[in-house]
């Protein structure tokens, strides 16, 4: 996957891409705008994530009486009984994972110098991310707030009504 620098220099061009006296004529097998869209995605998802993450921290860590002490199975059930929090948490999961995965992709490209090292680190990164996104999404939407046979003391109060 090394850049064929020599070939790109020797190829005659009808037009040089020249910025401030420097020629940018490197060609690559990938002639698309992926990196530009990745850059734009980081900024757009970043703004949305700022709102989603701050709401997430407020609702789960700051505002409950006792903070994280309040979070247990019944607390989660109370939230995911509502489609609003299911969709909210799914958006948070996807955007945060894609934002973080792209961030690590850039860091791997920056610091891993050997082609093969970069390739395998990214294979590992993308596999892990895909697994976590899939698992998280499945958990949100197959969640059972009142599982049959569970200790009623551990469940949300609305489970007793049924």
């Amino acid at each position: 996957m090394s850049t064929p620098l020599k070939a790109s220099i020797s190829v005659p061009r009808s037009k040089d891409l020249e910025v401030n006296g420097v020629k940018y004529n490197r060609s690559s097998s990938r002639r698309n705008n992926f990196e530009m869209y990745a850059w734009l995605f980081m900024r757009l998802s970043g703004v949305v994530l700022l709102v989603l993450v701050f709401v997430h921290l407020w609702v789960n860590l700051v505002s409950p009486e006792g903070g994280v002490e309040a979070v247990d199975f019944a607390f989660v059930a109370g939230k995911w009984a509502s489609p609003f929090w299911q969709v909210f948490d799914m958006l948070l999961l996807w955007l945060a994972m894609l934002h973080g995965t792209n961030g690590l992709r850039v860091i791997i490209d920056d610091y891993a110098e050997r082609d093969r090292t970069r390739f395998w680190l990214k294979v590992f990164l993308f596999t892990t991310s895909a697994f976590v996104i899939l698992l998280g999404t499945l958990v949100i939407f197959t969640f059972e707030p009142c599982p049959a046979g569970a200790d009623p003391a551990l469940l949300a109060s609305f489970c007793a009504a049924g």
């Binding site: 247990d72 199975f73 019944a74 989660v76 059930a77 999961l93 945060a96 994972m97 973080g100 995965t101 961030g103 690590l104 860091i107 892990t128 976590v132 698992l135 998280g136 499945l138 958990v139 197959t142 969640f143 599982p147 569970a150 200790d151 551990l154 469940l155």
Partner: peptide, 24 residues
């Protein structure tokens, strides 16, 4: 990087709600 690694762990621990109330 720190937030990303926490996020991986956080999704895995939350996934335990699918195992049992006791596990979570």
């Amino acid at each position: 990087v720190a937030i990303f690694f926490f996020l991986l762990v956080h999704v895995l621990d939350t996934a335990l709600v699918r195992v049992s109330p006791e596990a979570y």
